[in-house]
Amino acid sequence: MEDFEYLQALLGGEELPEVTTAFRDIWVLTDGAPEGLKVVDRARNLAETLGARVQVVLIRGEETADLIAAGADRVHLAAGYPESGADLAGDTEAALNALAPFLEEAAPEFILCADDWLGQELAPRLAQRLGAGLATRCLELTINENDRTLVAVRPVYQGDYYEVVNFAPHWPQMATLITAPLSQPYLDPHREGETEVLKPGLSAASRVRVLGETVLPETPLSLSRAAIVVTGGAALGVAGFEKLADLARRLGGAMAGAREAFELGWVEKDQLVDVTGHKVAPRLYMAFGVAGDVMHTAAIKEAKFVVAVHPDPGAPILAQADLGIVGDPCEVIDQLIAAL
């Protein structure tokens, strides 16, 4: 949808009103990760309709080439700054204290970043400090043609439906983007852009200190609360269940068995997904070698997304799954583990 509006604007369909405030340009905050490039790409598209420039603040490293190729007109390097050597990337306190005064002075019209640690930890704090409206985890961003405000579409209730968020005519306006569904950015090696090093000397004091590493103890996931459940059936075979347990661990989900697997003793009663066992309501449900009779499908009615793998193309579950693969469940698990 955004591409259509972009084309319309290019073809002279709508012209946005000129900027009347002191706020200028679309700014992108990134630590250089690929997600950031996608946001720069999106900012580039919006900038065309706005008649604005794209300015990027890079808080880790000095790799500006891709950022410029993706659409940055100017990249501000914050990595070597402040002189204290504090690593701004990963220290929200330091990054906030270093960047907020700079951004306040720069007066962006819009500030975007990806839904990573920057979007989750820094953006809300920055928004409050700048007195800016914020829409997090946006799937779509457009500009309201009447008053140059952002219009965002974002998921609620874990994606059950979406809400359209309007911004009041007050700037700067901020948004963070879910980048996974965005296509790879278009990189133009001939684009030119400037690089600037942020003025050193401003304090990046932090009241937070990292003490060391830790590993969380593994807590067993209860089936009814797990966000991901992977289930094995008769066609998976007993050897497949070890792989299934490995897959469950890697995905951070719970392992379960269908009726046949339980009767063959491959799983315990508290792992049984069936009308005679447990009902589950995960965001992702994957059934390997489960035929999927009504006793089973009744127990997974509330699953948000179902993937099924079965060697028999006529297995009932394949007709009900959101995505199905006809094939050997063991082989699919092997490939999945390799791809993760």
Binding site: G131, A132, G133, L134, A135, V151, V153, P155, G159, Y161, Y162, E163, V164, V165, N166, F167, A168, H170, V306, L318, A319, Q320, A321, D322, L323, G324, I325, V326, G327, D328, E331, V332, Q335, L336, A339
Partner: peptide, 29 residues
Amino acid sequence: EPLTSVAGRRFPPERTPGTRLEGSIEEAV
């Protein structure tokens, strides 16, 4: 006065049960 407000709803595309992933196992995965 709020800086942002919810103006409406949109909905995800309908689910498409029975969709198969084609190709070799590796491609499908």
